[in-house]
Nucleic acid binder design. Structure first.
Lengths: 129, 129
DNA sequence: TGAGAAACGAAATGTTATAACATTTTTCGG
DNA sequence: CCGAAAAATGTTATAACATTTCGTTTCTCA
């Protein structure tokens, strides 16, 4: 864990929601006052994802810190179209079903992406009003 | 269903695998011999997705024709890193669990993305050899 | 047939991600 | 401590993916 990687991770923690790589590039530039190129931040993100500290949300092209990095994780994301927030959940039953379906195909799984878009309770309520 | 939209759908059927928007742009250009801009093809893709004829694979930025457009679908994709192929499956149990988890959060779901990356049976075997 | 809606063409631009290569920093055996 | 090897980072350029904007054409239907 280097200074740069820690900084990217801290920015993600601070951000409070899914954050795009280019937002992070700007944020790192802001803290330092020197140029930071896209590869720099993308490399840090790849590292953090390998370590299980960060996840990528495919349907948003955005990144979030993991809620429980300690556990071998297999997460699903609920993404609110209203407030652009995301909630991470763990449901091993889904992993189980996916493993079962994969086995039926002879498929050797390595990475899972499970994302649900919709409206969070707060935004759904606001919307109904 | 217009001529252009039909052409894009046919190209997807013919392609035999996940296809990027820019590959489709090139392919449409080829068939016609006139320029076709990105918005033209993206509009057709959005239309076809609305109709449930095409799905987007988020983790590849690519598009595939749906296997069973007739049914209200709720699909999962198994994507092979070896041969870049994808298999579409329906497993209503997963939709059920996701609905259950969503309900627990008060979350109103609209779209689901479930993608599993790995190696298909063929490629896993070839890899082991 | 003519007004409104839907679809399409075209140019520019915005957004996301990586390739390729140079340089700096760290690590660790001697 | 020193220097070679490995890891990380900087820098430039470009690839890949997607949308905005606006003007024109085509379709529909009263």
């Amino acid at each position: 864990m280097t200074q740069l990687r820690r900084r990217v991770l801290e920015l993600l923690w601070a951000s409070g929601g899914p954050t795009s790589a280019y937002q992070l590039i700007e944020a790192v530039k802001g803290k330092e006052s020197r140029p930071v190129g896209p590869p720099t931040v993308y490399r840090a993100l790849h590292f953090l994802m390998e370590q299980g500290l960060v996840s990528r949300i495919e349907s948003l092209n955005a990144y979030v810190p993991c809620v429980h990095p300690e556990r071998d994780h297999d997460c699903l994301f609920f993404i609110c179209s209203g407030c652009r927030s995301s909630v991470e959940l763990e449901d091993s039953r889904i992993g189980g079903l996916l493993a079962e379906d994969a086995a039926a195909l002879g498929f050797v799984a390595s990475r899972r992406t499970v994302e649900v878009e919709g409206m969070c309770a707060r935004c759904a309520e606001a919307d109904a009003t």
